[in-house]
Amino acid sequence: MTEYKLVVVGAGGVGKSALTIQLIQNHFVDEYDPTIEDSYRKQVVIDGETCLLDILDTAGQEEYSAMRDQYMRTGEGFLCVFAINNTKSFEDIHHYREQIKRVKDSEDVPMVLVGNKCDLPSRTVDTKQAQDLARSYGIPFIETSAKTRQGVDDAFYTLVREIRKHKEKMSKDGKKKKKKSKTKCVIM
């Protein structure tokens, strides 16, 4: 069974824990209790493949930012979460993405942009803004509501699919490099 290491990042209060708990335990946590770091595991079937999701729910508070490099190193894919009623959390996505790329030393890291709290009427981040940002990053965008469960499975499952595509691409690139290195030079 394939294991996928997913990391949920975003500013404090955007609903990272609520999304994760909704996926794992099928219930909505409405009281806000700032996370330092929590880890969850769940076995699911995605596109006919049974897999184990190892999900790291991270601290959004700035005082825990020193811990970010460590979990970013171990993560295979990242859910970059903002709240649709919090423009600052949307603007912060850029910083999370840049930090992930720096730590992973790669421009090509599996990510999904997630606009959470889409059940709320007080939207300050337009869907088109988020779609445009995701398009500019070359990553999928999904709106979710941890409260109603809308888009929750889709967000995590899409990230797994992005990781699969990335692994497939990397193995193809690896095979191309191996083929090239088999060419021999004969000096007579």
Rank of each mutant, 00 (worst) to 15 (best):
C51Q: 11
T20W: 00
E63H: 06
P34K: 02
V8I: 09
I36V: 04
V44S: 12
E3F: 07
Y64W: 05
Q22E: 11
Y4E: 08
T50A: 12
K5R: 13
E37I: 13
K42G: 05
G15M: 04
V7P: 03
Q43W: 06
G13K: 11
T35S: 03
V29W: 13
V14M: 10
D38N: 04
S17Q: 00
E37S: 15
V45S: 13
S39A: 10
T35G: 02
E37T: 09
D30H: 09
A11G: 11
Y40C: 00
A18S: 10
D33Y: 03
Q22G: 11
T20I: 07
T58F: 01
Q22N: 12
Q43I: 08
D47C: 07
V45Q: 14
G60C: 04
T58W: 03
V44Q: 13
V29Q: 08
Q43R: 13
G10S: 04
E49F: 08
L52Q: 14
C51E: 09
Y64H: 05
I21H: 08
G12V: 08
G60E: 03
V44I: 12
G48V: 07
S39K: 09
L23Y: 12
L19H: 10
K42N: 11
I24R: 10
I21Q: 06
Q61S: 15
G10D: 00
G48M: 07
E37P: 02
D54T: 15
D33K: 01
V14H: 10
I24M: 15
T20H: 00
G12S: 12
D30W: 07
Y32F: 04
D33M: 02
L52S: 15
L19F: 12
Q43D: 12
D57I: 01
T35C: 00
R41Q: 13
Q22L: 04
Q43S: 11
Y32T: 01
E3P: 15
L56D: 10
F28Y: 11
D47N: 10
D47M: 07
D57R: 01
L23A: 14
P34A: 07
G12D: 14
E63Q: 08
S39I: 05
T50K: 10
Y4K: 15
D38K: 01
R41F: 05
